[in-house]
Deep mutational scan, measured.
Amino acid sequence: GLTEEQKQEIREAFDLFDTDGSGTIDAKELKVAMRALGFEPKKEEIKKMISEIDKDGSGTIDFEEFLTMMTA
């Protein structure tokens, strides 16, 4: 499992990506986040990433899903 410290770091990354503070990361926010990390993702790639992570089919990534992605 994760230490509380690791969870906190992932939470901070999540909050950075969640620019509108909605508690979820949408495609637009993910794209901005990827760019910040030096990637140039295409729209299809973003969609694919979200569909792989987005277990509940909401079209957005919540913290639990993000946590799973970061620790996979």
Rank of each mutant, 00 (worst) to 15 (best):
A33I: 15
S22Q: 02
G1P: 11
L37N: 03
E9Q: 15
I53C: 11
L30D: 00
G21W: 05
G1Y: 13
R11V: 01
D62V: 05
M34P: 00
Q6R: 15
E5A: 14
A36Y: 15
T3K: 04
M49V: 05
Q6S: 05
F66C: 01
G21N: 07
D56A: 08
I25D: 00
A33H: 02
D54I: 13
I61Q: 00
P41R: 05
A13I: 13
E4R: 09
Q8G: 04
K43P: 15
E52I: 11
K43Y: 14
T3P: 04
M34D: 01
Q8S: 08
L37R: 01
A72K: 12
P41Q: 03
G1V: 12
K7D: 02
E65R: 14
L16A: 11
G57C: 13
D15L: 12
D62L: 09
A33Y: 05
K48M: 15
Q6I: 07
M34E: 06
K55S: 09
A33G: 04
T3W: 04
I50M: 13
G1R: 11
M49L: 11
I50C: 08
V32Q: 14
K47E: 15
G21S: 05
A27D: 03
E44N: 06
E5F: 11
K31A: 15
S51N: 09
K31G: 14
R35S: 13
E12F: 11
D56H: 11
V32L: 15
K47L: 13
K55T: 07
D26L: 08
I10C: 09
T68I: 10
P41K: 06
T60V: 09
D26V: 04
D26C: 12
M70N: 01
D18I: 06
S22P: 01
K28C: 14
E64K: 06
I50F: 14
K7Q: 08
E45I: 12
I25V: 03
R35T: 12
G59W: 12
K43W: 15
T3E: 01
D15Y: 08
I10Q: 01
F63G: 01
I61A: 01
D15T: 07
D26H: 10
K7C: 11
E40F: 14
S22Y: 02
E5Y: 10
M69N: 01
T68H: 12
P41Y: 15
F14A: 00
D15V: 06
I46Y: 06
T60Y: 06
E4L: 10
E40N: 11
F17Y: 10
E29W: 15
K43D: 15
F66S: 00
D20Q: 05
A27N: 03
F39Q: 03
T68W: 14
T71S: 10
E12I: 11
E5L: 09
M49G: 02
K48Y: 07
D56S: 09
E65T: 14
M49D: 02
A13P: 00
S51Q: 10
F39N: 02
A72E: 08
Q6W: 13
L37Q: 03
E9V: 13
T60N: 07
E45C: 15
A36H: 14
T71M: 11
E9C: 15
M69V: 06
T19R: 11
Q6G: 02
L30C: 07
E65N: 09
I25H: 00
A36L: 12
T19G: 04
E45L: 12
E40C: 15
M69K: 02
K7P: 01
D26G: 10
D26F: 12
L67V: 05
Q6Y: 14
D56R: 12
T24Y: 08
T19Y: 14
E44C: 13
A36F: 11
F63A: 01
M69W: 13
D20N: 10
R11F: 03
K48N: 08
T24R: 12
I50S: 02
T19C: 13
Q6C: 13
G21F: 05
Q8V: 06
L30N: 00
A13W: 15
I25F: 02
E12R: 15
K7T: 06
K43S: 15
L67M: 05
M70C: 11
I53H: 11
K42H: 11
K43V: 12
F17D: 01
D26I: 03
F66H: 00
A33E: 00
T19E: 07
A27V: 14
E65D: 08
K31S: 14
K7M: 10
S22W: 03
A13C: 14
T24W: 10
E12M: 06
T60K: 13
V32G: 15
P41T: 07
M70Q: 00
F17I: 10
A33L: 15
A72L: 13
D15W: 07
T60M: 09
G57W: 11
K42E: 13
K43E: 15
Q8Y: 04
K31N: 11
E5N: 09
E9T: 14
T60Q: 10
A33P: 01
E44A: 06
L37W: 04
L30I: 08
E52W: 15
I61D: 00
I10R: 02
K55Y: 04
E44Y: 05
G23R: 02
M49E: 03
E40L: 07
E4H: 07
D54E: 09
E45W: 15
M70P: 00
K28L: 06
Q6N: 07
G38N: 02
G38V: 00
D18P: 01
G57L: 06
D54V: 14
S22G: 02
E40H: 13
S58A: 04
S51P: 01
K55I: 08
K55G: 08
I10A: 06
G59M: 11
A36W: 14
T3N: 04
A33Q: 01
D54M: 12
S58P: 02
P41F: 13
M49W: 11
D20C: 09
K47R: 11
D54T: 14
D18L: 04
M70H: 04
A33S: 02
L67D: 00
F66T: 00
F63V: 03
K7R: 10
T19P: 07
E12L: 14
D56Y: 08
L67F: 06
S51R: 06
G1L: 09
L16Q: 07
E40V: 13
L67E: 01
R35E: 15
A27W: 15
M69Q: 01
G23T: 02
E29H: 14
G59Y: 08
M34C: 07
M70D: 00
K42F: 10
D62C: 10
K55W: 09
G23I: 01
E9A: 11
I46G: 03
L30A: 04
K31L: 15
G23V: 01
Q8F: 06
T3A: 04
E4Q: 11
D20T: 07
K42Q: 10
M69Y: 11
L16H: 10
Q6L: 12
T68C: 12
V32K: 15
E52K: 12
E9K: 14
D26E: 06
M49C: 11
G59L: 07
Q8K: 14
D26N: 08
T71I: 11
G23F: 02
T3M: 03
A33D: 00
D54Y: 10
D18W: 05
K7G: 02
M70W: 05
I46F: 13
M69S: 02
V32S: 15
D20S: 08
Q8I: 07
K31W: 15
I50R: 01
A13S: 04
M49H: 03
G21A: 07
M70S: 01
K7L: 12
F63H: 01
E5I: 10
T71W: 13
A13Q: 06
G57F: 11
G38E: 02
L30W: 05
D26Q: 11
G59P: 03
D18E: 01
T71H: 06
R11N: 01
I25S: 00
L37V: 04
D56M: 10
I25N: 00
Q6T: 05
L30H: 00
R11K: 08
D56T: 10
